[in-house]
């Protein structure tokens, strides 16, 4: 039996030198596995089983996420969550979920390879991302843990504000789009193209 060869969506670009003059740092996060979880918050059996299996409450608030230990749960819809867990732990977690969920009306599905995560961080992360999405990332509602599905660079994506200082966003894109989105980010993230929206600025000439 040969050794399993794992290749994330952007692994072939890992050795590429990034341009020196980027105003944010860009990375692929490839060590997270993902489980798509469906169920109704109105069904206490489902909620209890999911919470027990995951060890963390399902975020009920739209556009939020919850974290405990290695597990992060991202709100995707009123009846859908994306659970992320370190790669290698997903089958055990999935079995645990399936077992706990039993015959409740629910669905847990391994989608670990369907998406990849592009991490954009730095003081200019918001404005770089706003070149590709109409979602207002400068809104006060964008706090650590905030999640939103969106159209990014004309591609369906999800975005999580991981933490600030420096501002760090995870952009979840479907695997087949990864190269396109990566190229797109390289194009808009050059220092010379920085946009500072609001805040103190040099007074324009009069």
């Amino acid at each position: 039996m040969s050794d399993l060869q794992f290749r994330s969506a952007l692994s072939h670009r890992r050795d590429e030198d990034l341009p020196m003059d980027l105003c944010v740092s860009l990375d692929e996060v490839s060590d997270r596995a993902m489980i798509d979880l469906r169920g109704s918050l109105d069904d206490p059996k489902f909620v209890a089983a999911a919470t027990a299996a995951l060890g963390v409450a399902l975020p009920a608030q739209p556009r939020s996420s919850s974290v405990k230990g290695d597990i992060t749960v991202l709100w995707m819809s009123v009846d859908q969550w994306l659970v992320t867990t370190p790669r290698g732990s997903e089958q055990a977690l999935l079995s645990k979920l399936v077992k706990r969920l039993g015959n409740t009306f629910s669905f847990a599905c391994d989608v670990s390879d369907a998406r990849t995560i592009i991490r954009v961080s730095g003081g200019d992360a918001r404005s770089v991302l706003m070149k590709g999405t109409s979602v207002d990332l400068q809104s006060p509602v964008v706090k650590p843990g905030w999640v939103r599905r969106l159209l990014f660079a004309e591609v369906a994506a999800a975005c999580q504000f991981v933490h600030s200082d420096p501002d760090t966003f995870d952009v979840y894109v479907f695997r087949s789009y990864a190269d396109y989105v990566w190229e797109w980010l390289l194009a808009v993230a050059r220092k010379g193209a920085r946009v500072q929206l609001y805040g103190k600025q040099e007074p324009p000439l009069v």
Binding site: L197, Q201, E202, P203
Partner: peptide, 21 residues
Amino acid sequence: TEWVQSTVSTLAAAENVHLMT
């Protein structure tokens, strides 16, 4: 122009204003 100059300076220093030429 004097009023314009001082107003532009004030607006440029404000956190909630973005001036574009």
